[in-house]
Design a protein around this nucleic acid. Structure first.
Lengths: 229, 229
DNA sequence: TGTACATCAGTGAACGCGCGTTCACTGATGTAC
DNA sequence: TGTACATCAGTGAACGCGCGTTCACTGATGTAC
């Protein structure tokens, strides 16, 4: 393997910004191609950008800072996807479903990006996580609030519900990514079904006696199922 | 750091079995102590066992084979936890909930073991995954079948439902592990609530018009909520 | 317009390190006679 | 019971490698006069 000739033009004064962006983009490219965080080395990244390894350190303090920047970039992409799904929705419950589907779609479309950002030991600083909390998750939190305000969900604290719904979407996304050989069928249909169940669960939450091992809801469901037949 | 003196007694003929088990146990110990897969090196494992590095290769073809053995061992532990939860349960729906709680409990009690086994790129061979499918997951699959046979769930294919419930439990477990600083509150209570929602969702699945953006179920729930008030 | 100079983005070579793995070996264990 | 020998679990030293990071440098860019 021959080293790539550094064809890149030198940046104008104070113009390292372009190289910085290129470096982050190169990491994302390598993640996409190799599906393996361990393939990310300073040398590999530098070569991909067309620059020598020490140049990376002009823009990032160390490798961890570089990966933090990549994670922040991934969060921004996730945020954009969920923001778009939110804008497309009309009712709050449908909005939560759309957000969940967009989330899973983003994750499986960018599996290694998702893995680095959300399935990895968090070397990410509080700052990086704040990006997530203030953006992508904020949309979900707001939509849950609207579900409560609209009387769709019981009138309780929206935060745990939002976290539960996030867990539901994350569960589908991360298990599909970690174990792709399991019989998922069509992933979007699977995700829709799983998210639908979680949503239905919250819609009917608190409407049945909860200390009876589901006997009350089961009896009700059985009766209704027979009536529908 | 001085190298540990190899105090270990030589195994009797054909008695490498003991060392093999000790090696797997040492890996699990290191994972527990460091919370970091990258801390697992052949040398570190050998030192922990009290043996030199090449000895490892008498029992495992290479590092990947060693990690596969560890994953299989973790799956066995998970299997035992879920088996115990299953035995404790009386009704099938309560059984699914108990299995899910046991699953999450096991995961957070053995976070790095869980990470290696279920949040990591699967270098595990099909053989290793079969252990999971034939043991831990089989209990869930069976319990879902019983939910259907008992008329608790709609009469459909149990496999996707089991996978969805697995995703729900995995979602809680893996997100709590990956982002422990989020406001989870009591993890068991959180898991119970999330699993409860998924279960409720499947209990009432198919009982409402599904092409109306949840309008039918929402109207029904609102009425019932008012009646209960 | 032309020249001397300061700046600083990027270079090239090297550092020390820990890794997975190999190989010829040693010496305690167990066996055959 | 005693001795010679085969076995093979575990050793010690070494291999080549790629890694993150450093440091003194170079030379194109832009500026001051």
């Amino acid at each position: 393997m021959t080293r790539a000739a550094p064809t890149r033009r030198r940046s104008p004064r104070g113009g390292g910004e372009q190289l910085r962006e290129d470096i982050v983009e190169a990491v994302k490219q390598l993640l996409r191609e190799t599906d393996d965080v361990d393939a990310i080395s300073i040398r590999a990244v530098a070569q991909r950008v067309g620059v020598t390894a020490p140049s990376i350190y002009l823009h990032f303090a160390d490798k961890e800072a570089l990966l933090d920047a990549v994670v922040a970039d991934v969060f921004a992409g996730l945020d954009a996807a969920i923001s778009a799904a939110t804008a497309r929705s009309t009712t709050p419950v449908a909005c939560v479903l759309a957000q969940g589907l967009a989330y899973v779609q983003f994750a499986v479309d960018h599996r290694e990006h998702y893995r680095v950002a959300l399935m990895q030991p968090s070397n990410d600083t509080a700052v990086v996580d704040d990006v997530l909390r203030d953006c992508a998750f904020a949309y979900l939190h707001r939509a849950v609030e609207e579900c409560i305000e609209g009387g769709f969900f019981a009138d309780t604290d929206p935060l745990p519900i939002a976290l539960e719904l996030w867990s539901a979407a994350h569960g589908v996304a991360s298990l599909v990514i970690a174990k792709p050989q399991l019989p998922w069928g069509d992933v979007e249909a699977f995700a829709r079904s799983a998210l639908n169940a979680a949503l239905l669960g919250h819609l009917v939450d608190g409407l049945f006696d909860e200390d009876d091992d589901y006997a009350a809801v089961a009896a009700w469901a059985r009766k209704r199922r027979n009536a529908l037949r």
